[in-house]
């Protein structure tokens, strides 16, 4: 028989520590996912724009960045920052710093590609029309290209944010106590895997499903009548 008493007995640890990261351990799924999404996207915008600049050097560097991080597993990036960077810098990096850095640099490569594709999806004629009425390059980008590019990006962007949100569970391998790790800790003591992993699956799903619902509404609002 299923015994969900294990959930209520450990609810505070699972949610406050595991989900929000407000317990005694470094951890928290949301505390990692939210800044990782925001900072990863911001860095991704710069990388996407860098790939499209006329400057050959900058675009090649940005392309190398994207190809490198798309070509290696996320777990490897986490291990690099966890084991190797502190040796090089002779400086310990706490779990949270490692996890956040790894997610931001890794995900920025994917966000960068989404931004690049979004900008390139705007027809050339739009840029020409904006240029022809006297707008500068920056104004053309800001008022004409980006608003249309962002609308085209939303579906891919939200998919990537959902992937990132779920991937934060990988941070548990360096001892970061997120939702997955919290469930594992409780399970080691109580041996109720079915109840515990079903519960965290539901929690993950509530967040990812809300994100896709919100995205659909947002997309509809961006589409002109």
């Amino acid at each position: 028989m299923l015994d969900f008493g294990v959930i209520s007995a450990n609810f505070k640890f699972l949610i406050v520590q595991g989900l929000f990261g407000l317990g005694g351990f470094a951890g928290g799924t949301l505390r990692l996912a939210i800044p990782a999404i925001v900072l990863g996207f911001v860095l991704g915008i710069f990388i996407g724009l860098a790939r499209l600049t006329p400057s050959r050097l900058i675009s090649v560097l940005a392309t190398l960045y994207v190809e490198f991080f798309r070509g290696v597993p996320l777990v490897m990036v986490i291990f690099w920052i966890w084991f190797i960077i502190p040796q090089i810098l002779r400086l310990p990096i706490p779990e949270y710093g490692v996890a956040l850095t790894a997610f931001v640099v890794f995900e920025a490569a994917y966000f960068g590609e989404i931004v690049r594709a979004g900008i390139q999806s705007v027809p050339r004629g739009q840029v020409e029309a904006a240029t022809a009425v006297g707008l500068t390059r920056a104004q053309t980008m800001r008022f004409v290209v980006l608003p249309q590019a962002i609308r085209n990006m939303v579906p891919a962007l939200v998919t990537q944010m959902i992937v990132l949100f779920k991937d934060t569970s990988l941070a548990s391998i360096i001892g970061y106590v997120d939702l997955t790790k919290a469930a594992q800790i409780v399970n080691n003591r109580e041996i109720k895997p079915f109840e515990l992993y079903l519960f965290i699956a539901v929690v993950y799903f509530i967040f990812t499903y809300s994100m896709s619902r919100f995205a659909r509404r947002f997309e509809r609002r961006l589409t002109p009548a």
């Binding site: 027809p123 004629g125 739009q126 020409e128 029309a129 904006a130 022809a132 009425v133 004409v144 608003p147 249309q148 609308r151 961006l222 002109p224």
Partner: peptide, 14 residues
């Protein structure tokens, strides 16, 4: 000071 009109209109759809 020079206006231009294109074959495909190129109005800003948003």
């Amino acid at each position: 000071r020079v206006g231009m009109v294109f074959q495909s209109f190129n109005l800003f759809p948003h």
